[in-house]
Simulated assay, not measured.
Amino acid sequence: MRLATWNVNSLKVRLPQVLQWLAETPVDVLCLQELKMDQDAFPLADIEAAGYRAAWLGQKTYNGVAILVRDGHSLDDVVPGIPGYDDEQRRVIAATVGGVRVICAYFVNGEAVDSPKYPYKLAWLAELERYVADELARHPALALLGDYNIAPDDRDVYDPEAWKDKVLCSVPERDAFRRLIGLGLTDSFRLFNQDEKQYSWWDYRAMMFRRNLGLRIDHILISDALKARATECVIDKAPRKWERPSDHTPVVLTLAE
């Protein structure tokens, strides 16, 4: 069973890339972030023609998340948003797929540590932590996939000194990431790859991708039940080389049956 996450930075723009990638890399579950489209604009017919079903939570211009599930797998108990948290931004959707609780999340960016959006990010992270703790109590086999907008440590940043104490790398954000780990989750990528200069996002400007000046901010955290089944987690850089790419690229986790 393969699970993947990908911030597509507008599904309307990136739909051809998503369909191409699914044809070449037929994962069982694909979590998408930054759909940037209304609920009724979701291209369900194209997704179904590619052999997938979907649950999604759309929002025009910003945000929006979706879980795509390959035909033959269940898609049950879909929950949009964070229960008990009144948030106008549509950033989270969860479903159970083949016995695995899948939470797809587009974490708040925060803009800058002195921005009004930064306290919202920290408050949102606290609500997500509460929600994930509740879900873990109900679903021992759980994966939290998404664009976290957090680089967990200096290995995940091309220039740690330049990014020190800045948004995506600030101490409170990294502490929030560690609290998620503390719930009983594991960074699946680090189970297999301890190399430096492994990134999932590169700014469009200044040839950052060609120079490999990026950040690892897209993650798949997994519970202990899935940790025992994990066999591989990789960053697939290929779509970042395609025409009109997202600034993010997919991360793919493989689980043994």
Results as ranks from 00 to 15, higher is better:
residue 137 A to G: 08
residue 231 T to F: 02
residue 125 L to H: 05
residue 176 A to C: 11
residue 119 P to N: 11
residue 231 T to I: 12
residue 216 R to Q: 11
residue 222 I to A: 14
residue 187 D to C: 11
residue 197 K to G: 11
residue 146 G to H: 02
residue 112 A to N: 04
residue 214 G to Q: 08
residue 164 K to L: 06
residue 224 D to E: 15
residue 218 D to E: 06
residue 206 A to L: 03
residue 206 A to H: 08
residue 134 D to E: 15
residue 220 I to H: 03
residue 158 Y to I: 03
residue 120 Y to V: 08
residue 148 Y to K: 00
residue 233 C to L: 01
residue 194 Q to N: 14
residue 185 L to P: 11
residue 196 E to D: 12
residue 171 V to M: 05
residue 216 R to G: 04
residue 229 R to M: 04
residue 155 R to P: 02
residue 160 P to L: 04
residue 123 A to H: 07
residue 122 L to G: 07
residue 112 A to D: 05
residue 181 I to C: 13
residue 229 R to K: 11
residue 181 I to F: 08
residue 155 R to D: 04
residue 171 V to D: 12
residue 114 D to R: 12
residue 213 L to V: 01
residue 183 L to I: 13
residue 115 S to P: 02
residue 199 Y to M: 14
residue 160 P to T: 06
residue 186 T to M: 09
residue 132 V to I: 05
residue 116 P to M: 00
residue 171 V to Q: 10
residue 197 K to F: 12
residue 120 Y to T: 00
residue 197 K to V: 09
residue 212 N to V: 06
residue 204 Y to D: 06
residue 150 I to A: 02
residue 195 D to I: 00
residue 131 Y to G: 07
residue 156 D to P: 00
residue 155 R to M: 04
residue 147 D to A: 00
residue 172 P to K: 13
residue 193 N to C: 12
residue 127 E to S: 03
residue 215 L to I: 13
residue 120 Y to S: 01
residue 179 R to S: 15
residue 129 E to C: 05
residue 212 N to W: 11
residue 150 I to C: 03
residue 150 I to M: 10
residue 196 E to C: 06
residue 191 L to R: 11
residue 221 L to R: 08
residue 234 V to L: 10
residue 187 D to P: 09
residue 201 W to K: 02
residue 118 Y to T: 01
residue 222 I to P: 01
residue 217 I to Q: 10
residue 170 S to L: 08
residue 189 F to M: 15
residue 163 W to C: 09
residue 152 P to E: 06
residue 176 A to T: 07
residue 189 F to T: 07
residue 203 D to T: 15
residue 221 L to D: 07
residue 227 K to P: 03
residue 138 R to N: 10
residue 157 V to I: 15
residue 201 W to H: 07
residue 194 Q to L: 15
residue 128 L to C: 01
